[in-house]
């Protein structure tokens, strides 16, 4: 049993992150946590793949089903575009949001409170940051795969009409980071499964009313302001602009919204996690 003496020391050099953080927070090994995610998802691959089909069903259903009923709608540049071309970028944004929020709330909470997966990880040299980075990276890899698949379908359907669309993938990943950060911060405040109703209560109306399915001009002016506060509205604006090629200065404003959101989410999540885990 004790014939070999394996090397289990913390690596000497693990980059800048290791040097600026209090010791014990980071062991430079988030890849081990990522490896776990791959193992878990290898067996539930069908559920993973199914996540890719959900926005596609929406796209075919709403895009083509409504297609004949609706005809053209007003696009981001004021021009008329087909309903499919209008709704597809919005579905891309919404699916980035949904995936990120599910991962950062339900899945994290399950492992945190119920399965105590993280307790086991923290009994090893891993620190809270290894765990957090590993989990977020997996969520982003999966999200990026879904987004890439969806964009490929859009390309095949001729819905990507501008070279700007190359940026849609990184933009989707960035939007997901922001939603995941805020979702994780919220999760640290949750006490039981009952609290997840509130997550649903925030995500579902946002999905329906953030100009995902119909233009902002449909709302009375007072409501337009409310809609413009939703993060998903800004994500939809970014995606619609990139896919149709109407990229203006407003895009920077939308991006700033997400930079702020990600920053606030990360700071709150890191502080709360440290407090909860190092009791």
């Amino acid at each position: 049993m004790t014939t070999t003496a394996p090397e289990t020391r913390v690596p000497e050099r693990v980059g800048v992150l290791f040097r600026v953080l209090p010791t014990g927070m980071y062991a430079g090994r988030p890849s081990a946590v990522l490896e776990r995610s791959f193992l878990v998802n290898r067996r539930t691959w069908l559920a993973v793949v199914s996540g890719f089909f959900e926005p596609l069903f929406f796209l075919f259903g709403l895009g083509y089903g409504f297609g004949a009923l609706i005809g053209d709608v007003t696009g981001p540049g004021g021009e008329h575009i087909s309903y499919v071309a209008f709704v597809a970028p919005a579905l891309l944004a919404a699916s980035a949001m949904n995936g990120a929020v599910t991962d950062a709330t339900f899945n994290i909470f399950f492992r945190f409170k119920y399965a105590r997966t993280y307790d086991a990880m923290l009994a090893t040299p891993l620190g809270p940051l290894d765990v957090a980075i590993g989990e977020i990276t997996w969520a982003l890899i999966r999200g990026a795969l879904y987004s890439a698949g969806f964009l490929a379908v859009m390309l095949g359907m001729g819905l990507l009409t501008s070279p700007w669309a190359v940026l849609a993938l990184p933009a989707a990943v960035f939007v997901a980071v922001a939603f995941a950060a805020v979702g994780m911060a919220c999760t640290t405040f949750m006490r039981s499964w009952q609290d997840f109703d509130l997550v649903n209560l925030a995500v579902m109306p946002m999905f329906l009313f953030s100009t995902t399915f119909f233009p902002l001009s449909v709302y009375p002016p007072a409501l337009r302001v409310v809609v413009q506060c939703f993060p998903l509205y800004h994500a939809v604006e970014i995606m619609r602009g990139l896919c149709t090629g109407f990229v203006g200065l407003a895009m920077l404003g939308h991006l700033a919204y997400f930079v702020l959101m990600a920053a606030v989410g990360l700071v709150v999540a890191a502080r709360r996690l440290g407090k909860l885990l190092l009791a």
Binding site: P6, E7, T8, R9, V10, P11, A27, R29, A32, V33, E35, R36, L39, V40, A115, T117, A120, M121, T124, P125, L126
Partner: peptide, 18 residues
């Protein structure tokens, strides 16, 4: 780790130690 098998539990845990 309830999301993994017996062998995977040992494997993944060992990887946490590098």
């Amino acid at each position: 780790d309830t999301e993994l098998t017996v062998r995977e539990n040992l494997h993944v845990y060992g990887r946490y130690f590098g």
